[in-house]
Design a protein around this nucleic acid. Structure first.
Length: 910
RNA sequence: GGGCACUUAGCUCAGUUGGUUAGAGCGUCACAUUGACAUUGUGAAGGUCAGAGGUUCAACUCCUCUAGUGCCUACCA
């Protein structure tokens, strides 16, 4: 065999190993050699936005997904992880526009025009996509590249168009003139979810519209009051009751308003003046109120964020300018009663950052409350059902959310859900598959009322233009409309709609892999994405999108701050890979990941993981290099192993235990726990104890190889590169394709042999006690000790393991094991379950010894006392389960014995 | 306003249905180093499990309240 380097150098092997995996073809489930009737395990990658490069959050997701998919593949399932990227409509266009502005193009949309700008965005997106895909490979993610998808490619475009049409035909997608969120900076509408609320100080003005108007109102935005068409009061409010139904004409700061007083139970009597100026055009709530009360909608703010020309004196002013002018006016007229500073939540655009205006516009919406024809349920109903009763009441069709608490959060969100505005005025995205033709047609379905001007239009919904004279809607669809289809658009829908279950090949993907088995995502996109996937899948396919969804938190820096460009604490995962290795990064991300909780990331953690990877490397190096025999087989059968000594029995037992536990943890997606257990076993039990024992006992090639092999298999999903590299040294086959070790339930015989645990514990305790004494007495390592153990019933087991006690860094020259012996004068006694006498050749420090023993006595006494009082409690003895009681009794007995011995010791000392 | 989570060793965090003297990693201190591995080994110190009540034979674990922190959400204009 070639010489193995002392330290594992990830950079040297990772790319080459990934290539080997990829070329094997086994990332593609169609190439897997499976047992008949093997289960499938499908998992769609949440597509990263093509807005840049991968960040640590992606690295975490890749680690989680790849660990899972590798595990499932090794379990013999038809496992597929489908990769992809997201064109991320607004996010990407906003990003590119920002870059263009930095390059000196002041208004990219106006200067470049639709086609040229789109070209720029496409170029950027393709670049970013290529980088991202490279980075996913660098992470070691074993996804099926033959099924690579993009939310904005042709196949996904077909799916989007078909779903839009289906929804339109079902009356779920409609076009309507309604108040919508508008980003002036981005020149586009936004859905309610794309708004981020920022708390800030605002002036809260209390005033009357005019002298002759009887009711005082309050607002933080006086300029919008130019569009008021009503004043709402609570119908129970004694002060205002009498006005309800009356109408007033007022002159508000130079603008004529016609106001109707309406009663609305939603108005809070105690807030402000208890009366609310209703601005239907520029407030979503007021808009709803206006619809209920049939109020006119008067627009005053335009899409440029300025007062529109119809509003006389204020025309052309920005909202802030208009506000100042109006307040000034009110003040002059003596109408302003109060001006106070309040905390206010203002909505800002997620991607553009500006304060969102509410404007009335003709837009496309998804109706979430309307009953779907032939189903008698609304989209909201479908979204609820999927996580509660199961889709169509079928328990098998239930999305299980981990951790469960997010189910409640999700349901609450649905309750507050309004119709989803899906049209955007940006250009980067799926163009709305709707065509219009101006014609004088009677009974046209829609009439666009813009500023009260009506015109008639013929409308056609479909993928392709119906012909000449038709113009396509200029708008694009909300990016989440296409990502909502992800679980099935990636599986070939609509083409694979007629797929056959059980037949291989992408054309049958939908039947073979949907509903997908599992999904993982950050809680940040629960509403954006999970909710929309459930909506789309249950509506379009009549099937849930995934059976299980695992929600994780976000990564934060050591101080608990979010990673962000503005803070400048960003970490490039690829740089971390280069410095510490991909395995180390993956392991550090997975250890400590708990469903639903945020996690802190810092370099020391990666360092620790790197050290472990190196440890694993060196364990392997040692075992492979120091083989005494020519043993070199792969997959040694556990039955053929000869466990000759106590240590052998112990380590094999322990290993089957850890295999069982780690498997169980992975089944339940407890990545961190599985990793911790494996680490503990590998480093402590196997390396620190068993390997050291093996050096003494010798002749253990088979057991060492057996454990090493299986350990590499267990570790592979976590740290695929280093394990695969080590595997190369003794097998031609890919570790990636090895079968996961069978988990055997413990046989009765093994259970009876649990004394093994106790015996090895005794040996370890003796060793630790001696090491401890050496440290305490600062005995030079070169100095050897003579030791006698009074073994009692443990005679045999101690004699068997005498060499181990001597050899494991205890520095014992002569070890005598006696059945029962009185402590030789001047020797020190230690208690480790048996009495150990150590000859310190007159170096015993009586004072120190007394202190040591006294301390131990008081600790033992304390413990014994607590046990005693527990056992003296009649209620405990009568009510606690029998095994608990006898356990406690046994403990007490031991402590009492120990105490007696210690007291004897201290006496002898005197 | 409503809701959710968190509070365990100096730091970062585990602790599965209540039942070992509450654990790990990092850090600290002491010692070691021709060894598979200094990306190492050995040992030690370090905790009123945020606080107060309650349920129970038994509470880090369940319940109530309080305090602090963080997040989500909402039509207080």
């Amino acid at each position: 065999m070639k010489e193995i380097p002392k330290a594992y150098n990830p950079n040297e092997y990772e790319d080459e190993i990934y290539k080997k995996w990829e070329q094997s073809g086994f990332f593609n489930p169609d190439n897997l050699k499976l047992k008949k009737g093997a289960d499938y395990f499908s998992l769609c990658m949440p597509p990263p936005n093509v807005t840049g490069i991968l960040h640590l959050g992606h690295a975490l997701e890749n680690a989680i997904m790849d660990t899972t998919i590798r595990y499932e593949r090794m379990r013999g399932k038809k496992a597929v992880l489908i990769p992809g990227t997201d064109h991320a409509g607004i996010a990407t266009q906003a990003k590119v526009e920002k870059i263009l502005v930095e390059q000196g193009i002041r208004n990219p949309r106006a200067e470049l025009g639709r086609e040229k700008l789109l070209e720029k965005v496409r170029e950027y997106a393709e670049n970013s996509k290529a980088t991202i895909l490279r980075q996913i490979k660098k992470m070691g993610t074993s996804c099926d590249w033959s099924r690579l998808a993009y939310t904005f490619d042709e196949k996904r475009n077909r799916a989007v168009n078909m779903v839009f049409k289906k929804m339109y035909d079902d009356g779920l997608v409609y076009r309507g003139f309604r108040a919508v969120n508008w980003s002036t900076l981005g020149q586009s509408t936004l859905s309610d979810d794309e708004i981020i609320y920022v708390e800030r100080k605002a002036k809260f003005y209390t005033f009357k519209y005019s002298k002759d108007f009887p009711i005082t109102i309050s607002t933080t935005r006086p300029e919008t009051k130019l569009g008021d068409t009503a004043v709402a009061v609570n119908p129970k409010d004694e002060r205002y009751k009498k006005y309800i139904g009356k109408e007033f004409d007022v002159d508000f700061a130079g603008v004529k308003l016609h106001l109707k007083i309406i009663g609305d139970r939603g108005v809070d009597i105690d807030f402000g003046t208890g009366a609310l100026g209703v601005t239907p055009a520029h407030s979503l709530i007021d808009y709803e109120m206006a619809v209920k009360n049939n109020l006119p909608i008067v627009r005053v703010i335009g899409e440029d964020g300025k007062i529109i020309s119809e509003v006389g004196v204020y025309a052309g002013l920005t909202t802030l300018e208009a506000r100042e002018k109006i307040v000034e006016n009110l003040r002059r007229e003596g109408l302003l009663e109060k001006e106070e500073e309040v905390d206010q939540n203002v909505g800002t655009a997620d991607r553009f950052g500006d304060v969102v205006e509410v404007l009335p516009k003709m837009q496309w919406f998804v109706d979430v409350n309307k009953k779907i024809p032939s189903r008698g349920k609304s989209l909201k109903d479908l979204m609820r059902e999927a996580v509660t009763t199961g889709h169509n009441g079928d328990k098998e069709q239930k999305v299980r959310i981990t951790p469960e608490r997010f189910t409640k959060v999700y349901l609450q969100w649905i309750d507050n859900l309004r119709d989803w505005c899906i049209s955007r005025q940006i250009w980067w995205g799926h163009r709305i598959p709707v065509y219009y033709r101006k014609q004088k047609i009677f009974n046209s379905q829609f009439s666009i009322s813009n500023n009260g001007v009506a015109s008639r239009q013929e409308i056609y919904v479909g993928e392709k233009s119906p012909g000449e004279g038709w113009e396509q809607d200029p708008d694009t669809l909300d990016t989440w409309f296409s990502s909502g289809l992800w679980t099935f658009s990636t599986l070939g829908w609509p083409l694979s709609a007629k797929a056959t279950r059980g037949r291989p090949g992408p054309e049958n993907d939908l039947a073979n892999f949907h509903p997908t088995t599992w999904m993982q995502m950050a809680y940040e996109i629960l509403f954006f994405w999970m909710a929309r996937m459930i909506l789309m899948s249950t509506y379009v396919l009549d099937e849930i999108p995934f059976k299980d969804v695992y929600i994780h938190g976000i990564l934060r820096d050591k101080e608990g701050r979010k990673f962000s460009k503005s803070v400048g604490n960003g970490v490039d995962p690829i740089e971390v890979c280069k410095k510490y290795g991909t395995d180390a990064l993956r392991l550090s991300l997975l250890s400590g990941v708990v469903p639903g909780n945020d996690m802190r990331f810092y370099e020391e953690k990666v360092e620790g993981a790197r050290n472990f990877v190196n440890k694993l490397w060196n364990i392997s190096r040692y075992i492979l290099a120091k083989r005494e025999s020519s043993a070199n087989f792969v997959r040694i059968s556990a039955n053929k192993l000869k466990d000759k000594t106590l240590a052998d029995k112990w380590i094999l037992d322990k290993f089957s235990q850890v295999t069982k536990e780690a498997t169980n943890d992975l089944e339940n997606f407890n990545f961190s726990q599985a990793g911790d257990k494996l680490r503990e076993f590998t480093w402590s039990d196997f390396a620190d104890w068993y390997l050291e024992i093996a050096k003494i006992e010798g002749n253990k090639d088979e057991i060492l190889l057996y454990i090493l092999e299986n350990l590499l298999i267990l570790w592979h999903p976590f740290v695929p590169f280093v394990t695969e590299k080590i595997w190369e040294s003794f097998s031609q086959e890919l570790l990636m394709m090895e079968k996961w070790p069978e988990v055997k339930t413990e046989s009765r015989k093994q259970k009876a042999e649990k004394s093994v645990d106790k015996d090895i514990k005794l040996i370890q305790d003796i060793i630790v006690a001696i090491r401890n004494l050496r440290a305490e007495y600062k005995i030079e390592p070169a100095k050897k000790l003579n030791v006698i153990i009074s073994a009692g019933s443990k005679m045999e087991i101690l004699e068997e393991n005498a060499e181990i006690i001597k050899g494991l860094r205890t520095g014992v020259r002569e070890l005598n094991i006696e059945k029962k012996i009185v402590k030789p004068k001047g020797w020190v006694e230690l208690d480790a379950g048996v009495s150990i006498y150590i000859d310190l050749a007159g170096a015993v420090d009586i004072v120190k010894e007394r202190e040591r023993i006294q301390k131990e006595i008081s600790e033992t006494e304390k413990y014994a006392k607590s046990l005693e009082s527990k056992l003296n409690n009649k209620e405990f003895v009568s009510k606690a389960p029998e095994n608990i009681v006898s356990q406690e009794k046994e403990k007490l007995k031991q402590q009492v014995e120990k105490l007696a011995n210690l007291e004897k010791q201290i006496k002898i000392l005197e």
